[in-house]
C-alpha cells in the first residue's frame, strides 16, 4: 500500500436494521496521518459506521476498505493494526482494570509496559479495582488506556470523552496530538463539537446515515455565514435590501444579523454610510456549522 492511499475508504455504504435505515449511502475517506472528526447527532449512524469498519456488522451494500483490507473478512490481520474504544464501555465485571487492559493488549498482539504505566498515571486510574466498581468515566479510561497502550496504525474512538471530566479530557487530547505527531491515523466520532474542533484536521458531518459535508474546518468556514453585530451613528435605512442577509434584528441604531461572506462588502458600505461606531464579526463556530446542517436556526444570543 502506498502512502497516498487512504487509511479508510468507504463508498456508498448502506445498512438497515429492520425498517430503520442506519446508513444510507455513506462515503468516508480518511487519509494517512490525519485526525478525522466524525460528527453527528445521536442516531445519525456514527457507531454503525464504526461497527462496519470493525467487522461487527456487515453492510448491506457499498464498499469499505480499512488499511487496504476488507473489514469483514480480514479481521485478524486488520485488527492487529488498529485500536478501538467503544462509546459504551462494558468491562468484564469480575476482572480488574489492569487485567482487562493487559488481556486486550495481549489479544492485540502488542504490549508496551512503559507506555501502559505512563497512561495509567496520566489518567489517574487505579488498575487494582474490579471493573464492576468503576464509574462510567473510569470504565472509559480503562478502554482508552488499553487502546492507547497498543501501537496501532489506526485508532477508532467512538465518543471517547463522554464520561471524562475536563481534566481527563485534556489528557485525552494530549494523547491524540501525540498519536498525530507519530504519524498515526485517528477517526474520532463525536457529538462534542469543541473536541473535534480542537483536534481534527478534517471533519465529516454525518446526518441520517450519510455524510453531508466533509473537509477541513477552514474550508467549511467560507461556505458559512458571518455573524455581525454593529452600532451606527444614524438610523439604518433599507438594510433589508442588502442581499444575502438573514436573522436581522434591528433595534434603533443597533443591528444584529448574519451575512453571506460574498455580500459582506455591501453590508459594510451600508454601515459606513450610517456612521459605523462599533463592529463585531465572528466566524461561525463549529456549533453553528453543525446546526445549520440540521435545519436549526442559530440564534446569535446563544453565542454572544
Amino acid at each position: 500500500m502506498s502512502d497516498s492511499a487512504p487509511v479508510i475508504d468507504v463508498h456508498g455504504l448502506t445498512k438497515s436494521f429492520g425498517s430503520t435505515r442506519a446508513l444510507d449511502g455513506l462515503d468516508l475517506r480518511v487519509e494517512r496521518g490525519e485526525v478525522h472528526g466524525f460528527l453527528g447527532p445521536n442516531g445519525a449512524g456514527k457507531t454503525t459506521t464504526l461497527r462496519v469498519l470493525l467487522g461487527s456488522v456487515r453492510a448491506d451494500s457499498g464498499s469499505a476498505t480499512v488499511l487496504g483490507l476488507d473489514p469483514w473478512s480480514d479481521i485478524p490481520a486488520l485488527h492487529a493494526r488498529l485500536a478501538y474504544v467503544p462509546g459504551d464501555v462494558a468491562l468484564l465485571p469480575g476482572l480488574t482494570g489492569g487485567e482487562v487492559i493487559d488481556l486486550l493488549a495481549r489479544l492485540q498482539g502488542g504490549h508496551d509496559a512503559a507506555r501502559r504505566a505512563r497512561l495509567l498515571e496520566m489518567f489517574e486510574l487505579d488498575p487494582t479495582k474490579k471493573a464492576r466498581s468503576y464509574s462510567k468515566g473510569n470504565r472509559q479510561k480503562v478502554a482508552l488506556v488499553a487502546a492507547l497502550a497498543s501501537r496501532a496504525e489506526l485508532y477508532l474512538f467512538d465518543e471517547p470523552t463522554s464520561g471524562l471530566d475536563p481534566l481527563m479530557e485534556e489528557q485525552f487530547r494530549h494523547c491524540v496530538r501525540e498519536l498525530k505527531g507519530d504519524g498515526r491515523t485517528v477517526l474520532l466520532s463525536s457529538h462534542i463539537l469543541s473536541e473535534a474542533e480542537a483536534l481534527s484536521d478534517r471533519i465529516s458531518i454525518i446526518r441520517a446515515g450519510a455524510v453531508v459535508e466533509t473537509g477541513a474546518l477552514s474550508d467549511m468556514r467560507h461556505l458559512q455565514r458571518l455573524a455581525i453585530s454593529a452600532e451606527t451613528g444614524h438610523e439604518l435605512h433599507g438594510i433589508t435590501d442588502v442581499p444575502g442577509l438573514d436573522d436581522v434584528v434591528l433595534e434603533g441604531n443597533h443591528l444584529r444579523c448574519t451575512v453571506e461572506p460574498a455580500h459582506l462588502a455591501e453590508l459594510l458600505s451600508h454601515l459606513t454610510a450610517a456612521g459605523i461606531k462599533t463592529l463585531e464579526s465572528h466566524p461561525p463556530s463549529l456549533e453553528q456549522l453543525f446546526l445549520s446542517h440540521y435545519g436549526v436556526r442559530v440564534d446569535e444570543d446563544d453565542h454572544a
Binding site: L95, T96, G98, E99, V100, I101, D102, L103, R106, D126, P127, T128, K129, K130
Partner: peptide, 8 residues
C-alpha cells in the same frame, strides 16, 4: 482489590 497486572 485485585491484581494490577493481568496474567490472562
Amino acid at each position: 482489590p485485585g491484581p494490577a497486572v493481568g496474567s490472562l
